[in-house]
Design a protein around this nucleic acid. Structure first.
Lengths: 259, 259
DNA sequence: CGTTATTTTGAGGATCTTCAACCATAGTGG
DNA sequence: CCACTATGGTTGAAGATCCTCAAAATAACG
């Protein structure tokens, strides 16, 4: 699958698209811009014009406190939509900022309107924001109730799982994580020093290895057990079982719409 | 306003309803159940049947870790919907549990379908879940980057603001907070001991006072400044300014639906 | 190849936790 | 009516985790 349709791979874990719908999605995400690292895609307080989709690169959702402290509240990886909420909550209460150089697709109000005429697409987009919400809950558990070392391990488990779902993890559980330790610290409610030491611990215990900006999870089961990771909150296995059948699912989707 | 339509007051901060729509909302939330304290409204792993609305009482969204630790990831106060996501994410990844005895309205799939046929209602429901998401982001900032004392102060500011929006705060900034210090600890990533001491600090500094289970914010500005609270993330002032006009808003709502 | 960003390490300290009581309150049953 | 129990709040002392400060080593970059 080509790089510019990773989001299709992600969404199709949840819904099945027709060729038609796939084409429509590709068409309305064709307008992209290149952004350098550490640049704001959307700013706090702003009334944004576009919905953004990360085509390549890593970005983050972040809040800055008065004292300059930063808390990263989400990682946006290739295939993720940044701000599907902008058409309801008109003022941004946080900023979206690139962590690395990014290719970002811009969808305007018309694009979204056309896409949402398709039930399967509308449902997939809502699914994606609800999963984001679920991830947020798990992050709160992470910083609220886990030790520094566990937090890092848990985040690595999550990223491995999310990146695998868009095909960015190789057979040896190796994936690119192009963020600095300072950024990890701002994500996990820790300091750089702590992050550095705890990563060292994980390496020394043979759970992970670093290869430049790549992380290799050497012992998946141990890393998961150590950090208490389960992937249920990512809701990745909704489609395969088809437990309630497509008919019911479509009916529900209709219920949720008709605005 | 009667107790059983606090959610109307909340939603109408954002959209205007016709008498018709108000009646419809009241009608489809008429089926209520009484629940004792510390009972699960919905359980993790479950495939839930109903969407729940808190009519009276306090409930929480929580996750339990393997070691029995608990993290509360949301407070659900009168007027809040608990689980609007259930028709898309079919498996609960967390539990919803009463903190006090509660009156809970149960809406089934048909209720939601009928309500969502009205654009204003559908939009209001999505607004409410997006605000929940925003609150979650701010909680992550709170636990990740603020001191114990600041976290408590911030939470009190938030609850005062949220409860005021449904008319549950009196003219002296007094409101009922029927949760134990243990529950506050599980909310803020702290221990009971810490919570107790920090609340004492806030009282000694004259920022708050306790009257049984009621909290009186004695110095709102100082409490806000101390905790770094701003209410932008609650998106409470969306309707009054009418900055973009009702026409545009309705058009956008239509875009987001049509599933 | 000099400059800047990032990672790493050490030492000391602060915040928050743990453990262990004790007190207050309210509900229960004899 | 009062001991009895359970729950929640409060306090003290000691310890652990994580932070702060500071500096060196390494990597990245024009």
């Amino acid at each position: 699958m080509s790089e510019d349709s990773l989001f299709l791979r992600k969404l199709e874990r949840f819904v099945s698209f027709s060729d038609d719908e796939r084409a429509l999605l590709k068409h309305h995400t064709r307008r992209t811009v290149q952004m350098p690292a550490k640049r704001e895609i959307a700013s706090e307080g702003q009334d944004p014009q576009y919905v953004h989709l990360i085509v390549s690169g890593f970005a983050s959702r972040q809040k800055i406190l008065e004292d300059g402290d930063r808390q990263i509240v989400a990682y946006l990886v290739p295939g993720d939509f940044c701000d599907l909420h902008v058409f309801i909550l008109r003022e941004m209460d946080h900023a979206i900022s690139t962590l690395t150089p990014c290719t970002v697709a811009q969808l305007d109000s018309d694009d979204i309107a056309i896409l949402c005429e398709r039930p399967a697409i509308a449902k997939a987009l809502w699914w994606s924001t609800l999963v984001d919400q679920s991830i947020l809950r798990e992050w709160l558990v992470n910083v609220g109730r886990r030790s520094a070392e566990e937090r890092i391990a848990h985040l690595f488990c999550e990223l491995m799982t999310r990146l695998r779902s868009v095909g960015l993890v190789d057979s040896e559980n190796r994936f690119l994580l192009p963020v600095t330790q300072t950024e990890l610290a701002d994500t996990l409610g820790l300091t750089v020093v702590s992050v550095n030491r705890m990563i060292r611990n994980l390496r020394n215990q043979g759970m992970i290895a670093l290869e430049g900006k790549q992380i290799v999870v050497r012992d998946v089961e141990r890393l998961k057990a150590f950090s208490g990771f389960t992937d249920n909150y990512l809701h990745l296995d909704e489609k395969p079982p088809q437990r309630r059948g497509d008919r019911v699912a479509r009916e529900e989707a209709r219920n949720l719409s008709s605005v």
